[in-house]
């Protein structure tokens, strides 16, 4: 691969869209070509802040989208629909039917909704873990120093994740990166255990939860807990007891 070809593929490479063979050629080239390596760095440098520019839906919007079918007024306010769709009569009928369905479905549906949302989250967490290992992209900021990793998150996410090096407990800190779960940017801390890695995902959350095992996903163990206004999910291929130990070590380190 020459420079011209590499420049054409730099975005595809940075986006993980190159096949293995061409990726190998690409990497071989940039290992020996500083200006092409700079082109790749230029593309990558923008990524974390672009991701962080996400606008999450306001909570009241979530509530009003849920409520819209039973509220013909809300329908009319939204405007912009062709006249035929605006006929209040048909909406009122539809609205009533849906309202009835909602009331019936609420008690049954809520439990299902929560369970499936949780299952989605676990799948997303596992995907994020696998991706970080497969793409060899464990950390946006690679450092075992918590005083380097913690400030790195400032301005990239709207909360300050606690960062602790657990080297003394056998889980040295590898670094941190921005990850993307449930459509929101979250903090990911990476720890090493022998030859394995632990991804710890952190975002603000209210409920206090004891350390507990989640259902393993595709052979990966997941442990979940929450305290001090933060929710934690740790995922790794290490055993469940070891992962629980990690959770305890992290919590202990925080309280000191």
């Amino acid at each position: 691969m020459n420079c011209e070809e590499v420049r054409e593929l730099v975005h595809a490479y940075a986006d993980g869209e190159l096949d293995v063979a061409r990726s190998v050629d690409f990497e071989r080239h940039i290992a020996n070509c500083e200006s092409c390596a700079a082109a790749l760095r230029n593309v990558r440098a923008l990524k974390p802040a672009i991701r962080g520019s996400y606008y999450a839906a306001p909570d009241d919007l979530r509530a009003s989208v849920l409520r819209f079918p039973s509220s013909p007024d809300g329908v009319r306010q939204s405007g912009g629909l062709p006249a035929a769709e605006r006929r209040a009569g048909s909406w009122l009928l539809t609205g009533l039917a849906i309202a009835a369905a909602l009331i019936l479905g609420f008690f049954v549906g809520d439990a299902f909704l929560r369970r499936s949302a949780n299952q989605n989250l676990l799948a997303e967490i596992t995907d994020a873990h696998v991706r970080s290992l497969a793409a060899n992209h464990l950390a946006d900021v690679a450092s075992s120093d918590q005083h380097t990793v913690r400030p790195w998150f400032e301005g990239k996410i709207d909360f300050a994740p606690p960062v602790e090096d657990l080297a003394t407990a056998g889980f040295p800190l590898v670094g941190g990166r921005l990850e993307y779960l449930r459509g929101r940017p979250v903090a990911a801390l990476v720890y090493q255990r022998r030859k394995h890695f632990v991804n710890l995902f952190i975002w603000p959350g209210d409920h206090v939860t004891e350390i507990r095992d989640e259902k393993p996903q595709r052979g990966y163990n997941i442990v979940h807990w929450a305290n001090d206004g933060m929710t934690y999910f740790a995922v790794s291929e290490i055993s469940a007891p070891e992962l629980r130990q990690f959770a305890r070590d992290f919590t202990t380190a925080l309280s000191h």
């Binding site: 996400y54 606008y55 999450a56 839906a57 306001p58 919007l61 979530r62 989208v65 849920l66 079918p69 849906i98 369905a101 909602l102 019936l104 479905g105 049954v108 549906g109 299902f112 909704l113 499936s116 949302a117 989605n120 449930r182 459509g183 929101r184």
Partner: peptide, 23 residues
């Protein structure tokens, strides 16, 4: 139930919908 299915399918992507609309 259709409405439940709709909520389960669509609500998890409300952030994505809003983010795109916002941009």
């Amino acid at each position: 139930m259709e409405t439940d299915l709709f909520e389960q399918t669509i609500l998890p992507h409300l952030d994505a919908a809003y983010n795109l609309a916002r941009w």
